[in-house]
């Protein structure tokens, strides 16, 4: 399915369709909007959490409209419960579609996780076992989302703290299977790889080497917190509350060496810093992105010019 062709057919949006520029983007926070607009911040794109713009009107939509006039956006759902055992909430999906129709985002993504069960929304990205049964369920849900919104979505690999004894697929193979069976693309969260690898005792580089990276259309980067598990061993928490750590920057470079230049997002959701700090973090990612071009900077600048 070609996302660009489908979006250009949507008549409802007042915004032009664009691909995400191959640059660093930043997760949009309401408190940064004034700084961003006043400084005409040089940022590749902004990612928004869909649920935050599902209200009927007011400030959130006014802010997003202004941002969208100047920047491409990526729409990232956090509450679809793609990995849920029950049905997708049709009302939620309809609201999701409405947002896409209005703002015409360059990318649409969701998580390999569940958050709703028996009509209760748990406000967290909860883990699922990797079995044939859950694979079929996830693929069915992605199919449903893609057919309702009329375009391809990206699915993000999770940070997890537990595993299920019944899992008989590896996470890497599971991700490859859902993409193969549903036609979705993948959002590769490098920090999640590092967090899950540490928590479950495997090497993040092994995960990256085995991953179907040719399906990756966007990368996420974030900071994490350190805690300890039941045996006092290190347990990492996907807290999005600080800078990206050196290990994750290194894995990011490894990833880019395999994917080629890919739009990359800095996520910082807790202990939200000043706009200046966040912008610096994005510049760091931009610098690494430039170097990932085989033909270095010329390609980057042509990308930037078309953005």
């Amino acid at each position: 399915m070609n996302a660009t062709i489908l979006t250009s057919q949507m008549p409802t949006s007042r915004f032009n369709s664009t691909d995400l520029p191959i640059r660093a983007g930043v997760g949009l926070k309401a408190e940064h909007v004034d700084d961003i607009l006043q400084s005409s911040a040089d940022i590749g794109f902004f990612e928004i959490h869909a649920e935050n713009y599902m209200g009927a009107g007011g400030m959130p939509h006014a802010q997003l409209t202004k941002i969208r006039e100047k920047y491409p956006i990526s729409l990232h759902g956090v509450g679809m419960s793609i990995g849920g055992s029950g049905d997708i909430d049709a009302e939620h999906l309809a609201r999701f579609k409405t947002l896409i129709d209005i703002y015409n985002p360059s990318m649409v993504s969701e998580h390999l996780a569940w958050s709703t069960h028996h009509d209760i929304f748990y406000n967290d990205l909860l883990p699922l076992p990797y079995t044939d049964e859950t694979l079929a369920k996830v693929v069915e849900h992605i199919d449903q989302v893609q057919s309702v919104i009329g375009r391809q979505i990206l699915i993000e690999n999770p940070s997890t703290y537990v595993t299920f004894k019944e899992s008989h697929w590896s996470e890497v193979d599971f991700m490859a299977q859902i993409a193969k069976r549903s036609g979705c693309a993948l959002l590769f969260d490098v920090n999640n790889v590092f967090v899950s690898a540490t928590n479950h005792g495997y090497k993040p580089a092994d995960y990256i080497n085995a991953y179907p990276l040719h399906l990756v259309k966007e990368i996420h980067l974030a900071g994490h917190a350190t805690d300890s598990d039941d045996h006092g061993e290190k347990l990492l928490i996907d807290a999005h509350d600080r800078e990206v750590c050196e290990d994750v920057w290194a894995l990011y470079k490894l990833t880019l060496s395999k994917t080629g230049p890919t739009p990359s997002l800095i996520e910082w959701d807790n202990e939200v810093p000043t706009w200046a700090t966040l912008e610096l973090e994005a510049k760091k990612a931009d610098a690494i992105l430039i170097n990932s071009y085989p033909d270095s900077k010329s390609a980057y600048h042509s990308q930037k010019a078309t953005a």
């Binding site: 990205l125 805690d227 807290a239 999005h240 807790n270």
Partner: peptide, 15 residues
């Protein structure tokens, strides 16, 4: 600006 009603995809406070 209302702080309320912000969904995000970050984990919280640990164990």
């Amino acid at each position: 600006v209302a702080k309320a009603g912000a969904n995000d995809c970050a984990a919280g406070p640990g164990t």
